[in-house]
Write a protein that binds this DNA or RNA. Structure first.
Lengths: 190, 190, 190, 190
DNA sequence: ACTTAAGCGAGACGGTACGTCTCGTCTTAAC
DNA sequence: GTTAAGACGAGACGTACCGTCTCGCTTAAGT
């Protein structure tokens, strides 16, 4: 993230950078990830294709950077109420997956994992893993000792992520009312 | 599916049909869905591109037909033991999602929903909905009355499908040991 | 020149071939050889770039074929009057070099010899050598025995070609009146 | 050639000027004129592209200046032996056209006349015309009165230049033995 | 057997986008 | 005030597939 390039030469233009990322966002919302072309982004941003390729190696990197603010999910809080922390984790997930830009890009990062492993890798390293680690910690705190082994915690995270993914990105169900509560009851019965 | 073309003229060649579908399967396993090109299929099958386009309108239809046997999930059984039926439903899901060809094609059907809605639609109508209807019936039978309202049943199906999808297709975790049991405990606590 | 391709497949379109060659001629006359781009030819001909690249490997080949009729210089006649034959040879040269399209393409074939040796080679093999052979024969017939050794004949051909080239292509002197007569006096004094 | 820039500020670096011209010479000999790029010259000279563009408007000017010493042909001498002067003129031509760097640059100056008229113009004004004027004077002195009209003299100069050009630059014939003598016999028969 | 209608291979075609290249200009910080 | 470094817009390069379109041949069902 930090830019350790030498300070010589013409500095990178913030104008064109913003124009590019703005055009990417616009085209993503208009056409989706698969139909987004570098050529169209360059044209809309009033920028040369070479400028895009100079700074982003692949469409995936470009799109991840353009949607960074929307995708960013943060860490699960660590309060005195562990169940509330888990609930917050679910909320973060539902909230992020519900943003138009984020839903497109997250879906693309997963869907193109096969053909663009770099994008999938960056996505995992930058957003999925950190969240999962803090969510797992919250889960351990919230569960009784006899349910808090690693494999059970990972399973419950998969239940949460899988269910939210299924609802919001696969079925494209915008109504998430009750989803959080139902997930909580399924994780913490009684 | 039924072929209402006039019976005159040279009949459709079964040889080339099989060669095409075989080539599709081979290319899917070798390159994946996104990297599969009609051109490569035609070349490998020793067939003209026009022949492919004559019989399949889109890459999606072609791929779904090529993987039909592997994708087919069937209906959830209806025995005297409703919990066993639900368990069977989960098993069908895990089993199908674990087949190499099926995992590629199911993933593609979901992933390209944005840009190829026809493929997603066919996939849903032909495989997802029938299974979900019978799985929902099994679930209703297995649940106590106070949990068997439609929205709760649909939610539990999303938990099952989402979790299995997450494990097998997103995380590409081939080890599904314990998955079935854990899902059952989450759906039927105590 | 003869087309020994197999008769299978869709036949080559004469329409697009003519459109391409016509566009090449137009662009050559408008912009010259160096400024001619394949992209502009494709656009003007209403043709895809791939169609041009399918049939012509290089800009040089394309241009030589487009100007074929204008460049073609033919062979030097072989009559009973050898001096008249030499005069005819000079006339062919002046005449060909004076045609707008031919002058552009011949100049290009020579000028780009350094960077496009293929074009120069085709040009030499197809037009220069045959003409030179027949011109040398006429020269041998026209000269007294003591001047008709090979090196002298080649020198005289270089005088003819060089002078005409200098006048028409380097100095771009369209007025060629007297040129033929003066060359004849220089070659055949007395 | 003279540098009329203001005398204030950092003076033009002779070091980089020489580095640039040296790199141009090297690249000309290695790759030829058409394949020479400003980018490669800058890289080889350890100089910024902007520095080159600041001092030379076009590739043509740059190349002409880099090859100045080699191209320079001087004036035809004016002795008591006019035929010897003409012979000296031919010798200057053959000699200059035979130098590797000069042959590349002279050829380029003529060949790119179509697309870079400035280079052709500078070349003509600086080298061709002065030599032609003095060569024409020598020719007038050497010829009998009845052959020394302007158009005949210009024609004979075209014969000389054209023939030498043809031999050395078009046919790339390094063997110029006999060429001078033959040209003399053709210009001065008997 | 003869006709006729489709199936089929080969492959040409107009498009669109790719990712690369070089051009000549512009913008900094360093000297 | 010039320089090296190097970002930039422009635009052509040659390639890859797309989905469509001829062709001339092959294959059977209907005559």
């Amino acid at each position: 993230m930090t830019n350790d390039r030498p300070k010589r030469g013409r500095p990178r233009s913030h104008t064109s950078r913003e124009a590019i990322l703005g055009a990417v966002r616009h085209r993503l919302l208009a056409d989706g990830y698969l139909r987004l072309t570098i050529e169209a982004v360059a044209a809309e941003a009033g920028v040369s294709k070479a400028t895009i390729y100079r700074w982003w190696k692949t469409k995936g990197e470009l799109v991840l950077e353009a949607a960074e603010g929307d995708i960013s999910i943060g860490l699960v809080p660590e309060t005195n109420d562990p169940r509330a922390d888990v609930e917050a984790a679910i909320h973060q997930l539902v909230d992020t997956f519900s943003r138009p830009l984020a839903s497109i890009v997250i879906f693309a990062a997963i869907a193109t994992g096969e053909s663009d492993p770099v994008m999938a890798q960056i996505f995992r390293d930058r957003y999925v893993y950190p969240w999962r680690v803090s969510a797992a910690a919250a889960m351990v705190r919230a569960l009784p000792e006899d349910r808090s082994e690693a494999s059970e915690v990972q399973f419950l995270l998969d239940v949460i992520v899988g269910t939210v993914f299924q609802r919001t990105l696969v079925l494209r169900e915008p109504n998430t009312v009750g989803l959080k509560g139902r997930l909580m009851s399924v994780i913490f019965p009684i």
